[in-house]
Design a protein around this nucleic acid. Structure first.
Length: 267
DNA sequence: CAAATCCCCTGCAGGC
DNA sequence: TGCCTGCAGGGGATTT
């Protein structure tokens, strides 16, 4: 479930483990779904490279290398990078010239991805992304939802409109903004868009501060779980009382995704 | 063009 | 106890 906050927490903790260090040895697994760049080529491209920076865009991490290439990484559903477990689900291991701790990419479900982006080149995966959700403003949400007949929840999950929102933070922001997830996106007005944008920024920042949400798989680079799940107001709380009005939280499926909302507070 | 559907992958919960 | 089914979900590809 890594969404923007989980990826950002990963970026911050991973930064000192990658940036400034030179990769000496690379070990890879063989999963063809995980490696967008074939494992042997990826290993050859990484060996000897120094990492200059670690950036995030939406749910993607981008490690800038000293030859101008970039390593694109996505955590998928169950990815963990850093001091991750070493077992059959470990797909990538990086060792460094300083003899310090190795960095591992572990991913049980293999929805995660790694890919080398050669110097000056990008990827449709990145190019397609809308603006990063952490700085979203109401007007962006407003223009991004015009002409969209789909549910507002579905549009929030569209990475081309906003990059970084996933199922949890969409539900949480919609609750804070008082907007029902099933509402048609185009019917959400400018005022509500502004309120929704503020709610998104708020839940994303709160999520980062709490170290992300750990439902079952997510772990920070050091292996510790996040804490934001404790603060979830509606996500995963179907049947529990709304924290604002005590009405039972409802769970419905919207766009193949479970959605949670308060039928009284959200319209 | 938008939206709906399918698929990838694995562990786990629930039913019998 | 063990087997089977269904579900979770990010996101790309395909179909409607």
């Amino acid at each position: 479930m890594p969404e923007l906050p989980e990826v950002e927490v990963t970026r911050r903790q991973l930064q000192p483990l990658l940036v400034g260090r030179t990769i000496t040895r690379v070990w890879t697994g063989r999963s063809s779904t995980f490696f967008l760049t074939p494992p042997l080529r990826l290993a050859r491209r990484l060996a000897g490279r120094r990492v200059l920076a670690l950036d995030r865009v939406g749910k993607y991490l981008l490690a800038l290398l000293d030859d101008g290439a970039r390593l694109l990484m996505h955590l998928g559903m169950t990815g963990q990078i850093g001091d991750a477990p070493l077992d059959v689900h470990t797909h990538l291991r990086l060792r460094f010239d300083d003899g310090g701790p190795e960095v591992r990419f572990h991913d049980v479900r293999k929805f995660g991805k790694v890919q080398i982006l050669e110097p000056g080149r990008s990827s449709p995966r990145v190019d397609r992304l809308g603006p990063d959700a952490l700085g979203v403003r109401g007007d962006r949400l407003f223009t991004g939802t015009r002409g969209r007949r789909a549910a507002i929840k579905t549009v929030l999950l569209d990475q081309a409109v906003l990059a970084g929102i996933g199922n949890i933070y969409a539900d949480e922001a919609l609750f804070l903004a008082g907007v029902r997830p099933s509402r048609r996106a185009a019917r959400v007005g400018a005022v509500e868009c502004r309120r929704l944008a503020a709610a998104l920024r708020r839940v994303l920042r709160q999520g980062i501060r709490a170290g992300g949400s750990t439902i079952d798989d997510y772990r920070r680079p050091d292996g510790s779980p996040g804490q934001y799940q404790e603060d979830h107001r509606v996500y995963g709380r179907a049947g529990e009382p709304c924290p604002r009005c005590r009405t039972r939280i409802r769970r419905v499926v919207i766009g193949q995704r479970s959605s949670h909302y308060c039928p009284r507070c959200q319209s």
